[in-house]
Design a protein around this nucleic acid. Structure first.
Lengths: 139, 139
DNA sequence: CCGTATCCTAAATGATACTG
DNA sequence: CAGTATCATTTAGGATACGG
């Protein structure tokens, strides 16, 4: 059955640039933050503790350009800007939440896999006398 | 109700590095490709038409390090290497598929939003005589 | 407060050549 | 075939300063 494979190959050229836009860490987190209610620039920035002004500005611009969040300038002084999720953005809420939840749920498994991999990589570094000290898998 | 917000803030530090690992274009596409059956390096490379050897190697290594795909060397000559999805990787199959499907489904909406945004941005560039030629939103 | 502009450094990417 | 290594170039990221 090659239906699935063929389908992927057919849609791939269109999907690729879109994933490029939406499938990144900051986009997911920022969209998650504005899901409940409109949020101001510096509130998001403080919550994402560590993101630079530049990175946040770029992320918000890209989200806005793709129609996922709306930008609203409130003409007080000093100016206030509110970012809110759009109707289109709402359709991404569940997929993003699934990814977020997956990260929470499988955190320890990921970490375990990482340390195993890293342990192996380290062991293979100075492998000159390794075969003398280490008995390989006997299975 | 701040339960949701509080929960996000509590899990955020752990989730961030994980999203950093998994939420990127190549990882999603590569994992999608090995979902059905084990795939060899150059098969994946050809399908992802355009990805460089280096980028694919790095993506596969990261997936392997995080326990999402398994690498199996088949000692024939010339050597063959097969990449297959792991049990942990399977748990990501649905979230990734949701993202992929979203991209297919909302492709035209994204493109529409992009051209609107870009048209506005272009119009604002040389805005010297703009107010004379353009009637702003009357709503 | 919410950005943009600039400068600088670090990292990602690409092309090319080489190895088991 | 499946990589690693190297280098050259582009791009991202951070720090700072300034403007609306």
């Amino acid at each position: 059955m090659e239906t699935k494979e063929t389908e992927i190959m057919a849609t791939l050229p269109a999907v690729r640039p879109i994933l490029e836009q939406i499938a990144n860490k900051w986009a997911i987190l920022v969209l998650t933050f504005v899901c409940d209610k409109p949020q101001r620039f510096n509130v998001i920035k403080r919550r994402l503790d560590g993101i630079t002004q530049k990175a946040l500005t770029e992320t918000l611009r890209r989200l806005e350009r793709n129609g996922l969040v709306a930008r609203r300038v409130i003409p007080v002084s000093p100016v206030a800007v509110e970012y809110s999720i759009t109707k289109l953005g709402r359709t991404l809420q569940d997929p993003f939440a699934a990814l977020y939840d997956w990260s929470v749920t499988h955190q320890s498994e990921i970490e375990k896999a990482q340390s195993q991999f890293d342990a192996f990589a380290t062991a293979s570094k100075g492998c000159g006398n390794l075969e003398g000290n280490f008995e390989g898998p006997t299975a």
